[in-house]
Design a binder for these strands. Structure first.
Lengths: 224, 224
DNA sequence: CTAATAGTGTCTCTGAGACACTATTTG
DNA sequence: CAAATAGTGTCTCAGAGACACTATTAG
């Protein structure tokens, strides 16, 4: 069922077709919490979503939903899963592709609403499930690279990076092991952070060395 | 865009809707090679696929495609990705959900055709891409559990299991390390294999202890 | 006995975790 | 100086890889 390499066009079978929608879980980290963008919806707060327009790609529909419903641009999406329960929408037969995006809070539009991912029970529809998928995806991606979605700024201290990881994984990491492991993907800028009391921390930048898959088993293991 | 919890049904927007299809990469291992089931198609050999019928779930459509085009039942599917290039099918606007299944060769219907995953250049459409996704998924799943898709029989020697992993990952594993690691997920039956020359090998069964994610980093690493 | 394959003992190396130590700042 | 935070030296433990050794069969 597919691509274009010249050959006679046969008509498509004429079954009724589903509506296809996209829903987007936009995650961020703020106030030591992983949060997800929500919008108002007649049935309560919900993830932004929209129907796919003719000829549009799913990622473009996700982009449009975010632009129209939350005033939000320049976001990268990942597909997660197609929600395909025929009864999931009482307006008819609607499939929805669940997408995931991760954006630093500073780029959230002013006035955007968000809820902690621990509190997604309040979301309408099956959107709590989408958020769970998004958080799993976030953790998986952050275990194979240093901050791949750019939640932290260009230059940061290792403490700031560790706090970010602690929020994402919901557990503490030992400072010495964390430093020694993640510094494989970092380079020192030579500058020092001029904040707070105590010895100033060095600032680091991410290098573009991705960690090997499985190279960070300590992110998965027991303690904290 | 979603579920059912009582509230007035509003009409769906009346955009044109895409056709939705499924394509299935059924992988197996035979002759020391990972192969994928293919079917004849007017444009050359292709993965089995079909259009989604009204009210049907995607996994059911995948099951139906496999039944109708390859005489094949009782297969478990995973969603991989939605192929959504509007130009990917010259018959019209067709989205296709790429699915993945893994089945021991003994369960392939007689006469089923398959090609080595290294040779998917010969497949029609964008199906080589789907096979690549399927192989990646296979490897990821086999690194976190012992033969989760049951490619090997109930009882097997560690050599047989190692050969299976060597085919899947396309590299050799050291016999001692392989045994010591994977035996965490195995139990001895007490019986011995009565095949071949040399000391008979013990037979093992899988236990249902899943390995931790990241618990098999050696599957990802360098050597052979 | 030899050939062949199964399985283990053990050494080295690497990385995680723990803990204490040193280093550099502010007040 | 003390307090506070940054960063390191080093020990222990566990697992991977390498290698050689022992174990059990067929002939």
């Amino acid at each position: 069922m597919s691509k274009n390499p010249g050959s006679p066009s046969k008509p498509l079978t004429d079954y009724p077709r589903p509506s296809v929608a996209v829903d987007v879980a936009v995650l961020t980290v703020i106030d030591e919490t992983v949060k997800v963008l929500v919008v108002d919806h007649p049935r309560g707060r919900a993830l932004p979503g929209t129907f796919l327009h003719p000829g549009e790609r799913l990622a473009d529909a996700a982009r449009r939903a975010l632009h129209d419903k939350a005033g939000f641009d320049s976001v990268e999406f990942h597909q997660m899963a197609m929600l395909d329960d025929p009864e999931r929408d009482d307006r008819g037969w609607v499939l929805s592709m669940a997408h995931n995006a991760v954006v630093p809070f500073e780029r959230f539009p002013t006035g955007a609403q968000s809820v902690a991912v621990a509190d997604t029970g309040i979301l309408a529809f099956d959107h709590a499930e989408i958020v769970t998928l998004a958080v799993d995806d976030l953790r998986r991606r952050y275990s194979t690279a240093v901050d791949p979605s750019g939640l932290i700024g260009d230059e940061f201290t290792i403490l700031e990076l560790r706090r970010l990881y602690e929020v994402i994984y919901g557990r503490r990491f030992p400072k010495d092991t964390f430093r020694r492991h993640l510094s494989h993907g970092l380079e020192a800028t030579g500058e020092l952070s001029r904040e707070g009391v105590g010895r100033p921390a060095e600032l680091y930048r991410k290098t573009h060395t991705p960690l090997l898959p499985g190279a960070a088993p300590f992110l998965w293991n027991r303690s904290g």
